[in-house]
Design a protein around this nucleic acid. Sequence first.
DNA 1: GTCTATAATATGATAGAC
DNA 2: GTCTATCATATTATAGAC
Lengths: 190, 190
Amino acid sequence: MGRAPSIDDDVLLGHLAEVFRQAGYEGASLTALSSASGLHRASLYHRFPTGKPGMAAAVLDSVEQAFGAILDPLTAEDDPSAAVREMARRVGAFYADGRLACVLDTMTLSGAPDEIKVRAAGLATTWLSAMAGVARRAGATEPDAARRARAALVRIEGSLVVTRVLADPAEFQLALAELPAILIPSDPGR
Amino acid sequence: MGRAPSIDDDVLLGHLAEVFRQAGYEGASLTALSSASGLHRASLYHRFPTGKPGMAAAVLDSVEQAFGAILDPLTAEDDPSAAVREMARRVGAFYADGRLACVLDTMTLSGAPDEIKVRAAGLATTWLSAMAGVARRAGATEPDAARRARAALVRIEGSLVVTRVLADPAEFQLALAELPAILIPSDPGR
DNA sequence: GTCTATAATATGATAGAC
DNA sequence: GTCTATCATATTATAGAC
């Protein structure tokens, strides 16, 4: 809120986010955050006076903002199937085709501050609502739409874990391809 | 291999495993491992001369052993559907109804030694093979059985993440309930 | 086999020069 | 706004008493 962030801030947050996503909250050491961002530790504290929790919160802010753009097609595109396909495309880009983990996964392990966990839960809820919305627009009843949205989130998060464990992005790609069939009642599936 | 472990070793490994599962490899500090196990840090080093990597490897050993028992019904039980239902019951117990995370997820983040990641991948492969086996016995073609096994693993891992993020075990319970429909071609589903 | 004590290093964080 | 230098603490790990 307030002023628009400078491009530098966005780039910085991108670097920080990558560390938090790959290492989790505790694994994201100041040294790792420093070398990934190119800023020395003291400079990070200048930008984030509340330290590591502040950096994590800012990362979640930036992820929330990124998801604004990712979920935009779900309301902007008229055809529900096309909307989901475009969201899937943007989700694939955000997760670098499965090479990057999800903050919902890595930042909610024990060791993360409660505030971070609460924000992560909020992010998940936003995502679920948007996906349930498009399912509802496609004709699903409200409980069915909610069920479909949760199934889609489970599918994405699970495929990211399996992709990381097996070091094989195929499962993530498959999950993206099946999102329309999961979310849209009338979709013919794959 | 070699001698059978004493009950004390099993209890100790259970405590260590809980920390690694909830905090990830880097988040599992010696202090946390010490207080969870009741042993002082030096005593842990006596048991595991190679330190934290050795503890993590031993935890993966014990998880591998636990999965031997979890997957046993898949070959011991004649009826494929009943076999999967029994596996699902045991999986539910192992993950404490969704309250405990999966080592495949938490121990494969950046920061874990490569040896740990390799062992985790092996564990996942063992699990996938066992599930593909029961699907094949139930009449699935080989590629379909492999696909079903991966879908089941994705579903379990994803539901564990979503359950943790939303602090709601319902999604994990639902995943367990749907395992027969995912793995068994002729299963009527829910 | 477990403990107390301690070492060496890494971590989160701050002060102050430029 | 970024840097060097530094602090207090937590971390992994070892030595040696019991």
